[in-house]
Design a binder for these strands. Structure first.
Lengths: 361, 361
DNA sequence: GTTGGCACTCTTTCCTTTCGAGTGCTAATA
DNA sequence: TATTAGCACTCGAAAGGAAAGAGTGCCAAC
């Protein structure tokens, strides 16, 4: 069901104003602001209709209007001006990103912190990783009790571990093991690391001291860890600067949820195409704790079939357009660096496709 | 200047009660509680004197008494019952620590999180590292454009980096470089990595493609990073459950300070002997933001001349004895795992030496 | 030195009043 | 028919005031 042009303008004005001031907005304010040449009385009529349509609500008779989640949805889907950041801002973001990025692992923290700084909301970053295998397996002999395991994974991350044994091993054994692991344990996923495989490796290496199992344990650990989604949240405290979280209990509850690594997105629909931005408004969130907050999430391509997400959590009264624009730049930057290379080049303003929950009604 | 036994008991009772309830405590409450057989009127007289001595204060005439920082100081230095945790609690802490610990690097986050969980206050963990050198240098050849640098440091941490080059290198060169770095760059500190050294290595390796400088840059990076103190803070949101931080602005300010990695301790006196616990009460803190909070810090031995600290930040009304006891166990556990081995064995209750700021007046 | 008693103080809480922003409606107007 | 001006009305927020209660300080008695 569609609504008149003027209603749309008014709705947009209400949202803009409310986002700015956090106060219910009255008919006068709109009349004096939006460029539609009509008086507050007319606006009042329109507002009343918007209320009955479900886009706005009144905290109480005789207060101004406040957008409902449905109102925000409409705003985000149709009315919002897709904000284009100025060249300076874009460059600033890219510069700050460049300073920070090394490899994915160290990155995820930095990225969420950066997102939080840019938007002034709490931010989270996460990767879901798809099946990972070991690409190379090396063991460096240090001394009779010590060696270093170095594992390179299919996503080109490298993990290492220093192993100190209570018993002495000779260098030959280590070399044998290194060779065996490098042939037997590469190219397989975690499930394929069976006790059978470990046993046969142990026998083949003529290892009587249980070194094999130590190494195998590390292999499993690395594979498991690499497949476990990692999440990082920063800037929870920024919530406190939002008027809707003046109530410490409310703030505490949400912050607790966030820093508990609470799952922000439902798993089924967790991953979008890289480059898209997803907005979940209030009750559209599955987690009870987020029912009156909103989440904006950008998906990026982290290479090797891996997608990652950066998102921002805030009150439903959130500056969706600014947040979406900034996240979009961040995500594009990440895709460019980490991804398999189909991302647009740095300078380019990307399209900013915004997807809703379902494009409801 | 010393005060009577009874005054001490009363002071202790005031602190205990205030810590528990967060409400100013009145004469009646003390009379009915502390085991001293005298009536509320007597207590009132004593309280009045404690106020004039500066150990207590009244928010206003006709409210109960609240300890001053000086009162807390007295309490911590002399009156506090050094809490001994039950065996179960101790074991619980140790178990939870065991689950988590791998190497120092991953640990620091886990430790601060654990400390925060245990005490229910925000916690921070940090290490200052002393001069670190490289102990071993290996380069693993992967393919013509790719190799892995593996560096083992004097503190037995291992770092690696995957290097992808735009040009092809041959395996021989990599081997030469590996050998050269392993002899030339080991045992030296960061400052000793001079352009001169890098140049001579480059020539010796007959490297015309600038590979040497890439590797040297990594060496420098690793050394620098290893010497940079790392800090980690968790559980900031727990502040919100403390009544003194019901004011969101206050909470926000402190949380902002904390998560900005604010320096909690003055550098000069930053490091104590491992095993000691240090308490900084209210205005004893140097940072303006902490002037009405307290900090409890335990120092642990992280091995290889490195000391680390775990600390907890809370309101001055803090359960010092419980926090100190828990941190002490944590610190001992860390020393045992990471340290050079003089820490007491696990089961043992350690002495819990508590040091003040200065043992003032 | 200790205790009971009592007047006094000061905050907290609750109630009432006032104020004002903003509405909804009606009647006039284009 | 759509818009506007005007006006009574509503309801929350802010301001004022009275009552309640906790706790003190001090005095006189023990």
């Amino acid at each position: 069901m569609s609504i008149s042009e003027r209603k749309k303008k008014i709705l947009a004005a209400v949202v803009d104003e409310y986002v700015r001031t956090a106060e219910p907005v009255g008919s006068k304010a709109i009349a004096s602001k939006a460029g539609l040449g009509c008086s507050s009385a007319t606006i009042r009529n329109e507002l009343a209709e918007l209320v009955s349509l479900g886009y706005l609500e009144q905290p109480h008779t005789s207060a101004g209007r406040v957008p409902t989640p449905m109102g925000y949805r409409m705003y985000v889907n149709e009315l919002m001006e897709k904000q284009r950041l100025s060249l300076e801002e874009t460059e600033d973001i890219n510069r700050r990103m460049n300073q920070k990025l090394r490899e994915l692992d160290d990155t995820i923290n930095d990225v969420s912190r950066l997102a939080s700084q840019l938007t002034d909301y709490p931010a989270l970053a996460l990767t879901t990783r798809t099946a990972v295998t070991i690409k190379r397996f090396d063991i460096i002999y240090v001394d009779a009790n010590t060696f270093i395991i170095v594992v390179m994974l299919s996503d080109n991350t490298v993990k290492n571990k220093l192993v100190k044994l209570p018993v002495s091993v000779d260098q030959k054994l280590v070399q044998r093991l290194s060779a065996l692991f490098n042939s037997g344990f590469t190219g397989i996923t975690e499930e394929a690391v069976t006790p059978l495989l470990i046993n046969s490796t142990e026998r083949a290496a003529d290892d009587t001291m249980g070194v094999t199992s130590v190494i195998a344990a590390f292999a499993i650990e690395v594979l498991t860890e690499a497949q476990t989604p990692t999440a990082s949240i920063s800037g929870e405290n920024r919530l406190l600067s939002q008027p809707e979280f003046r109530d410490p209990d409310k703030a505490h509850r949400l912050m607790g949820y966030l820093s508990g690594g609470g799952y922000i997105l439902p798993p089924e629909e967790s991953m979008e195409e890289a480059g898209e931005i997803k907005v979940l408004i209030g009750p559209e969130n599955v987690a009870e704790e987020l029912k009156d907050s909103s989440v904006v999430i950008a998906t990026y391509d982290a290479g090797d079939n891996t997608k990652g997400m950066i998102g921002v959590v805030g009150p439903t009264r959130m500056d969706y357009s600014a947040v979406a624009a900034k996240l979009s730049i961040l995500a594009a930057g990440l895709s460019r660096r980490l991804g398999s290379g189909e991302a647009p080049p740095e300078g380019m303003h990307n399209k900013l496709i915004i997807k809703g929950d379902t494009g409801n009604e």
